[in-house]
Each structure stands twice: as structure tokens, then as C-alpha cells.
Write a protein that binds this DNA or RNA. Structure first.
Lengths: 263, 263
DNA sequence: CACCGTTGTATCCATGGCGATACAACGACG
DNA sequence: CGTCGTTGTATCGCCATGGATACAACGGTG
């Protein structure tokens, strides 16, 4: 009962797959490789998973066509032969596991989304004008274009474009407003100040929401913007945070993602 | 045993899909909903995407069976009828976009992976003993874990378990070693000191690798561990970083993920 | 040398997803 | 009241995926 049988009864709210050379590596493939590792043969793995041995073998071959050697197979000999995972297969499984971990994390970590317009672009970093001032963040990754079906998370960000600024709550550090850090001594550039508006306490982790005043309140009439920060409950205690307290938020430009906003 | 497997940037792209009620919502579905939004009708969306209208409609119905109302359809009337996206559809698209953004980010952001064993667990936070000392991080979901991972190798982390500690390079801030920040004034708890070993400069973003000495070098004989930090080139200049410089690394426990290492 | 369990390889067949097509129902508009 | 373009619904066929089966090749072992 190591595994829940059934068609990939994916548990989380999401499912991720690696892609290389047009071949997807998903949870089913990961299970297959793990079963090969456990059984010591493709045949044993197939029967353990209740799937066709011939198909499992051909699946491994197509995977190897895209990802390189994954299973070292040997026929004849002691026990009739057998198969072992290659080192690259373990790395692949590691990559898959990490992807899964990231996926699980995004499902549970809140994030703050601000709208803004691109003010300047300098390489991978763009400066965006938002209601709470200028923020800088990464736009896109090192994009290789030509994705087949998924429409654009294209990196086509240009000056003047409307974008969403997404800030993961786990990237935001909360600082005591009184104890200002010399901004020249750290690599965290984005800074905002505000007052604690709400604290959602978990078991040992709390989500602190900080109301940040818009830069030009009377001009725009915008309400305060809530920025979420995920910090440990211990930190909440240590900083003595309570609603109304003034705090300073800080996070790195590289932890800020910009996504083009359709309209 | 090398401790860090420094995944090169853009090791491979992935594909993500939301899952609910056994129904996957992938890039194709996202494109369909966006086309409906743009065309104002399912028929127009189908023809714009070059796919069958009947299938598009039935696909929307199966999606709605799992995700609730997505498209408000109306037949007859002005223009013969039409369809509009429901608010929940926009939220769904937002969730999907967010997933895509995270996926793209993980593909392009290097990360540091350390092996360790769980030393203590307190709620969502676990303390892990690694070669460079005790680090704390999140395991599994946070707080609102109404549904824990029902999948097999979930987040069942127990004391003594071997785990991988995964630190995204974009979560690590680099501080001038001379200008130490009062640790009581910030919510970033994990700290390490080391010396810059390499700087990979991008256009405006650089990856700084910092060699951290193991706590018990002569006892374990381990080599120094490289921890990656992604910071802007401007920050590199501002801090005057060069190989050999002593620096202080700091990142939040909530930005550290632990994944069970099966082996 | 026969036996064994595995790796290779080929073929058939069931299933599901999707395009293509056709037709009924609908309701505002001219 | 007829027209129009849409939403509903049903049916057919194509094609890819994967299971089922069969058989050859292989190389230690007894």
C-alpha cells in the first residue's frame, strides 16, 4: 500500500510535469521509475503498478529519447536480467520532486497582487509604477519561446504595458519600523512602510497583512493596499506585532514577478 | 557526497495544470476561456482557436462540473445569444496564471539543495540539521491545511527523517558582513556567513555563490557548501561584492521548503 | 545443454478524446 | 412572422494511448 492505486489520483490542487523535447514527464512516469528502482526490473515494476510491461518499456524508451539514458537494462544472466536506474534518472526524479514541492507551496502561500504599468525596463528587471510607488521585479524567465499550447506567459513586457506585480508572501520580510536597516548593506531593494492591519495566526506561521498608504492618496482616492507577509509566529512575538503597529516591509526585486495583464 | 546540486538555470520547462474533482484545467482550457472572453461566444472562440465548437462546449461543461459555473451562456436574443465569463472563471484563470508564473520562476531561478535530518518539528516549521548547521523551514502546507496531501509520499515529515532543504536563490538576501543587522528587528531567521566564491553576472541580475564552511569541518571532513543568491547587479555593485569577500546571508524560514528525501 | 526470467519487438484490440456534421431550440430584431 | 447566429444535443469516424498477447534473443545457472 505504498501507493494509491488508480489513475494518478492526484491529490493537490495542481499537477506539474517536466517537459523536454516535447515529452512530458509526469507523476505516472515518476512512479514508473520509482517502481523500477524498487523492483529491479521493468517487468516487476509493470506488474507492481498493474500496467502493461510492453507499454512501460516503450514509455521508458520515449522518455530516454528526450531525457537521455534513464534505465540501465540488461537481459540474460542471473535472474534472467534486470534493470537499474541510471544516475540521471535520480536527478530527474529529484527535479520532479522539487517541482511538486513548489507546486504544493504555491497552493498554500498567499501572495499580493498589485496592478501597475511598466515604467522602465533594464534587462531582466523592470520598474513598475503602482499605487504604492515604484516597485522593481523580474519579468519572465530566460524565455525560450515556441510553447505549443499555453498562451503567453510571454516575456513581451514593454514600457507602458499594464502588468500584475506578484509578491509571494514568503518573500516579504517584516522589520521594526523604528530599527531601520541601512539600505546600502543589503540586497533587498523594494521597501514599503505601513501599519499592521490583520494577523492570521497559524500553528507556528502567521500571515501578517500590512496596510500601505498609496503615494498620492488625495489625488487618486485609492484605498490602502494590503500587502501580505508570511512570517513565523515566533517572529510575530519577537517583533511584538499587533494591529496598528507601524512596520517596514522589505523584499528583493528578484523575488517579485511581473506578468503581463491582458487588460 | 556533494551537498549542493546546483541546478543550472533553465534546466527544463514544465507544464502545470490545476486539478479539481478529477478534472484537469490546463493551458488549453485557459486558452479556451480567454477566447470566449475575447469573442463573446463559445462559437466564436472555437472558430478562433480552430477547434470544434461542440467539443469546446462539452469541455466547458465538464469543467463546470468540477469548478462550478464558468461561462454564462445565453441563447437566442440579440446577436443570436452569446457567452460571458463568470467571475469564478477569471479567478480560475488568475490561479492558473499564478501557477504558470511560479513554474517559469522555478525553471529560471537556481536553488540550493542541502541534505539534512529533521531535528525538531513545531507545527508547520521544522528544524533540520545540515552540514552548515541548523536551518528551519516549512514542510508541506501552511495553516489552512484543511486537506492534507492525500497522496502517498506527502509531507509526512517526522523527526529523524532525511530531507532535502530547498532554498530558492531569490529568497536569499546578501548582507555586508561588517554591517550586521540586529536579528531582533527582522523576521528573517536563517543566517549563514561565508565568502563569495563566484559571481555569475547576467544582464541586470547576478547569481552570487557563497561558500559556507561546515560547522564541524575536521570532524566530518565535508567541503564547503555553496549557497546561491540571486540579486540584482546593482546590488552587487552597491555592496562591492567580489570573490573572497565575507558576506552574511539571510533568508526566511517561510521561504525554505523541506521535501522528504526517499532513499 | 536445457531451463529460467528478463529484455526486445511486433501485432491486435478496446477506450477516450476530439473533429466534423447535422439538427432542434431559443429569443431579439427588422 | 421570418431571419439570424447562437446555444443545446446527438452521432459518426479518426487517431492516439495503452493494455493483451505472442514470440525471439539473451546469458547465467544447474
Amino acid at each position: 500500500m505504498s501507493d494509491t492505486t488508480g489513475p494518478d489520483a492526484a491529490a493537490g490542487r495542481g499537477r506539474a510535469a517536466l517537459i523536454e523535447g516535447g515529452v512530458e514527464f509526469d507523476g505516472r512516469d515518476a512512479a514508473l521509475l520509482r517502481a523500477v528502482d524498487a523492483a529491479g526490473s521493468v517487468a516487476g515494476a509493470a506488474s507492481a503498478l498493474g500496467r502493461s510491461r510492453a507499454r512501460a518499456l516503450s514509455r521508458i524508451e520515449t522518455l530516454e529519447g528526450a531525457y537521455g539514458t534513464l534505465v540501465e537494462r540488461r537481459r540474460g544472466g542471473e535472474g534472467g536480467g534486470g534493470s537499474r536506474l541510471a544516475g540521471s534518472a535520480r536527478e530527474l526524479l529529484d527535479r520532479y520532486d522539487r517541482l511538486q514541492a513548489v507546486l504544493a507551496a504555491t497552493a498554500s502561500v498567499p501572495e499580493t497582487v498589485l496592478r501597475g504599468t511598466v515604467e522602465a525596463i533594464d534587462g531582466e528587471i523592470a520598474v513598475v509604477d503602482t499605487a504604492v510607488g515604484a516597485l522593481s521585479g523580474l519579468h519572465g524567465g530566460t524565455g525560450d519561446g515556441a510553447d505549443t499550447d499555453s498562451d503567453g506567459d510571454g516575456d513581451a513586457v514593454a514600457v507602458g504595458d499594464p502588468v500584475q506585480v506578484r509578491i509571494g508572501a514568503d518573500a516579504v520580510t517584516v522589520n521594526d519600523a523604528a530599527n531601520a536597516v541601512d539600505p546600502d548593506a543589503t540586497s533587498a531593494r523594494n521597501r514599503l512602510t505601513g501599519r499592521v492591519s490583520r494577523i492570521d495566526s497559524g500553528e507556528t506561521v502567521s500571515t501578517v497583512r500590512v496596510a500601505v498608504e498609496p503615494v498620492d492618496r488625495e489625488a487618486t482616492g485609492d484605498a490602502a493596499v494590503d500587502v501580505a507577509a508570511l512570517i513565523t509566529a515566533e517572529s510575530v512575538d519577537r517583533l511584538g506585532l499587533a494591529p496598528g503597529d507601524p512596520v517596514s516591509l522589505r523584499w528583493k526585486a528578484t523575488a517579485t514577478r511581473l506578468v503581463p495583464h491582458a487588460e
